[in-house]
Design a protein around this nucleic acid. Structure first.
Lengths: 193, 193
DNA sequence: CAAGAACTTGCGTGTCACGCACTATTTGCG
DNA sequence: CGCAAATAGTGCGTGACACGCAAGTTCTTG
């Protein structure tokens, strides 16, 4: 148990994020102000002061889970076979990362479609850009601007895909929407419907 | 007089954003907490309560100018000649929009490189996505996913370009960096140095 | 097993966002 | 030309919040 401490820490962090997101979903996008810090803390089994040691705002706590997921983007790409072309490697890595457990619709809807959460939601997705850019740079041998642009564009495309997946009209698996969105990015000529 | 009222409103809004950004730059990225609401309001010549009618957080006020600029992305694209290919039209439109007055380095550095401002900064850039996507859809005739993905990717590339332009090492005009970043997006094969 | 690091918690404080009620200015209409 | 309705600015009061500080508690390490 080299790090019993680190695991406890991660556990409480997750307890807080899941509690925060659950309470937010219960109140719906309109009543975000009704989700009190005390409620989140007690729901997570922790003192309000401890909650505040982990997150410095309700918004950050609610979107913390999304941030943790995005942060693994680089590792997801690194796990792809080395011979694979970059575009399919990225696509499959992102599909795996974001649909391995198909995300909870209500949770994602809360995070992405609540105006007061918009900033933190963008931040949560953006934390993946750095690690993804690094992984892309390793794979392509390139360095500097292009990998970062590609990484940021990929993350942006996934955001758009998420928005579309939440649309009541389109009732397709999230994986398909992500593939279509990244297709728009990687093969601009072909208009995939 | 097309609405004296609307113009006054825009004037006070700009007064608040410029005051907020100026004070923030004065304190530097570290001392954001020292920028009090009272200071911003009095520097803008309005009451603190009025400041709060326009913005609901310091961060929003500081990044308000950036948001206003990004919001014009759609119009900037529409102003390009109709025959132009999409990629060059977008590139030139964005170069014009973001470098017509070369941005203030200190201000952009404050907005983009202050951790507490990251969420609002992303939000400020993201407000341009909707209008840009609409303009792209009009031009290309397409609708749905692809224009939105392209718009989001373009905005993301500009963000990365801004980050690179702020790097002390690279001392190039902002326009060049934007062109290189969008080049990474539109012609992925060519590795522009 | 003891010293010290890391984590949690309670308390106190300064700041903030916002609802409400009131005043002043602008607009549109008879 | 004035009068009513709409809109913006302001002061006050309140509830919530983020965080510094200083204990107390649990884990790590030599």
């Amino acid at each position: 148990m080299s790090d019993l401490r680190a695991r406890n820490r991660q556990a409480t962090r997750e307890a807080i994020t899941t509690a925060a997101l659950r309470l937010a979903v219960e109140q719906g996008p309109g009543g975000l102000a009704l989700v009190r810090v005390n409620d989140i803390a007690s729901a997570a089994g922790v003192s309000p002061r401890t909650y505040n040691n982990y997150f410095s705002s309700r918004e950050e706590a609610i979107c913390g889970g999304q941030a943790d997921q995005s942060r693994r983007a680089g590792d997801a790409l690194r796990a792809r076979p080395a011979g694979e072309p970059l575009d399919v490697a990225v696509t499959e890595a992102m599909v795996g990362l974001f649909t391995d457990p198909e995300p909870d619709r209500a949770g994602l809807r809360m995070i992405m479609l609540t105006p007061e959460l918009e900033g933190e939601a963008l931040r949560a997705f953006a934390v993946g850009e750095a690690s993804l850019a690094e992984a892309i740079a390793e794979r392509g041998g390139e360095t500097g601007l292009c990998p970062e642009v590609t990484a940021a564009a990929v993350v942006a495309a996934i955001r758009v895909a998420g928005r579309h997946w939440l649309t009541p009209a389109a009732n397709q698996p999230f994986a398909d929407v992500i593939r279509r969105a990244l297709g728009c990015l990687f093969s601009p000529g072909r208009t995939s419907r």
